[in-house]
Structures are given as structure tokens and as C-alpha cells.
Simulated scan of single mutants.
Amino acid sequence: MSVILGIDIGGSGIKGAPVNVSTGQLAGERHRIPTPEGARPDDVVRVVAQLVEHFGLDGPVGVTFPGIVQHGHTLSAANVDKGWIGLDADALFTQATGRDVRLLNDADAAGLAEAKFGAGRGVDGTVLVLTFGTGIGSALVHNGVLVPNTELGHLWLREHHAETWASDRARERDDLNWKQWSKRVSGYLQHLELLFSPDLFIIGGGVSKKAEKWQDHIRLERSRLIPAALQNEAGIVGAALLAAQPAPPAPLVSPALRPARVAGRTEAVPVPVKPSKDKARRKSS
């Protein structure tokens, strides 16, 4: 199946389009519905179901989410309702749409798309895609394989929290000109360069449309840097790419976890483990 529906959940809008996963190009016009206020799970699921019905495509559906996604569960909710935390969102979307839904982090989706069809196409080695907007999203891709949920916007640079200090929102908040902002970004990228030695940085988000204002001011030691190519289509394309891949095997469940019902949903919680007698003796001695 070469045409698959990709849906990108954003803070202000939820948009979708059919994607030719062989070429990375949209196979039809995008359709956008405003994100419901508060972005509560039931409301967002309803909009995603509307988009699926609008396009009427059979087959799997890829959906992005602005938070950590692990084995179909949403584990963080920085800019959406806290009810997403611990939710089996894959199952919720699948039930509501009647399609096999595959969920992934929004920055990871952009990374997949840029690595395969965008600015990282044909680049071997390590590609690090960073989206600068309200925060800083990250996607780490090595030889075309995604390492999910890197969340590198939450690194600390001495006293600075990276995305609070160097995001596009920080530029606007602190009234920085592009050269001043680029100095912060350079410090952040140099730290990532030390940690990951990427062959290529790809800079996405809204700033990718204004690369001429900041690109010449970025200073790196050895990595190359280029702006993203797919821009607003990257999330949709990356979501469809994931849905086109075979589903991974079900993860093994740690014996230290057990299912529990929390606020109408099932999530894993730690089971208390009693210390061994040896540990107890050491503690009392």
C-alpha cells in the first residue's frame, strides 16, 4: 500500500493528508481542524476520527503526538491535557477510528520524514533533527533508523534549561535579535555535538522558513547544519511512514510492573519489592 493517511496533532490545529510513502509527497490536499481547547483525550480522538472519515482511506493510519510515546502509550503531556499521561492512546485511536493506528512523537515523525525524503535524504551516519518553536523537539536518526523519544530539548546547559533558553519562544520572550538567538543556539548545538557527534544537524520548526536570518551566525566544531526541507508537511509524512512499517512485536512486561486502573484507564505501576535479607543486614550494620 503506497498511500497512507498521516495525521499531525498540533497545539492549534490537527491536520491530515494522504501520503505516497514511496515518494514522501502528499497524495491529496491537507485538511485541518482546530485543536479542541484543552486538548483532552476524548476531544482530540473525536477530531482524529473526523479526519479519518473525511479522507475515507482504508488501511493503517499514522498519528503524531506532542509528547513521549512508548509502545503506543503517551507518557508525557507538556502542552496537552494531563489525562494523556499513561494512556494507551494507540488502542483509543484504533477503537474510535476503526483503523490500525500507529502513534509516535511529533518531532520523531519530522525526523523520519526529513531523513528519508527531506534535508537528510542520502546522508549516512547520524542525523539530528531539531524543531525550534514553543519548545525544542528532537529526533535522532542513525543510518535511517530512528532512536525514539530523545527529548533533547530538556537538557541542562549549566544553569540553563535548553528549550526554555534557546527555543523560538525564548527568542520572542527575551526580545532577542537573530544574532543574539543564534549565539544561544550555537552553545546548545555545540553541547549536542559533544554528546552525539552528528554528521548533520537539520533545523526545523517555524525558524526553518527564516534560515537566511540565523544560519550564518551558527558556530559548530565539525558537524554540518542545514534547514529542514519539508517544513509543515514533515509530521504528516513521518506519521504515514511509521504506519507503513510492520508493527513491532509486543514488548515484554517487566515482572516489577502490574496493571492498575487509574482514572478509567489501565497503566503500569511499580510493585514494591522487599529488600533481600543481605541488604537488610548491610543496612542495619
Rank of each mutant, 00 (worst) to 15 (best):
L92M: 15
L87H: 13
V21S: 02
N79G: 02
V61W: 06
F93E: 05
F55A: 00
I14F: 05
V19Y: 07
A91P: 12
D106K: 11
P18M: 07
A17N: 06
A78G: 13
E53W: 10
I68E: 12
V19T: 04
E53Y: 07
F55P: 00
E53S: 14
L92C: 13
V47W: 03
A39I: 06
V101M: 06
L103V: 15
G98V: 08
T64P: 04
H54S: 00
I68S: 03
L103Q: 07
Q25S: 09
K15P: 13
G56A: 08
D42S: 09
T64S: 13
G13P: 01
G59S: 07
D42Y: 01
I33D: 10
E29I: 09
V48Q: 08
E29Y: 07
G67M: 05
R30A: 13
R46I: 01
P60C: 02
E37Y: 02
A91K: 15
A91Q: 15
G62V: 04
N20I: 06
A49H: 09
V63I: 14
I85Q: 03
D90R: 15
V21Y: 06
K15F: 12
I9H: 00
I7V: 15
V69E: 04
G28C: 07
P34A: 11
V69R: 03
D58A: 14
L103C: 03
P18S: 04
R32T: 13
G59R: 06
R102C: 06
I85F: 12
D106S: 09
R102H: 14
P34C: 03
G13E: 12
Q25R: 11
H31E: 05
F65C: 00
L51K: 00
N79R: 08
I33S: 05
L75T: 08
W84L: 01
V69F: 05
T23A: 03
A17M: 08
G11E: 11
A89S: 12
T23P: 12
E29W: 08
D106A: 10
A49E: 12
V52D: 14
D88K: 15
G56D: 08
A91W: 08
A27K: 02
L26T: 04
A49L: 09
L26W: 02
V80C: 06
S22F: 09
T74G: 13
F65R: 00
I33C: 07
S22E: 15
H31F: 11
S76P: 05
S76L: 06
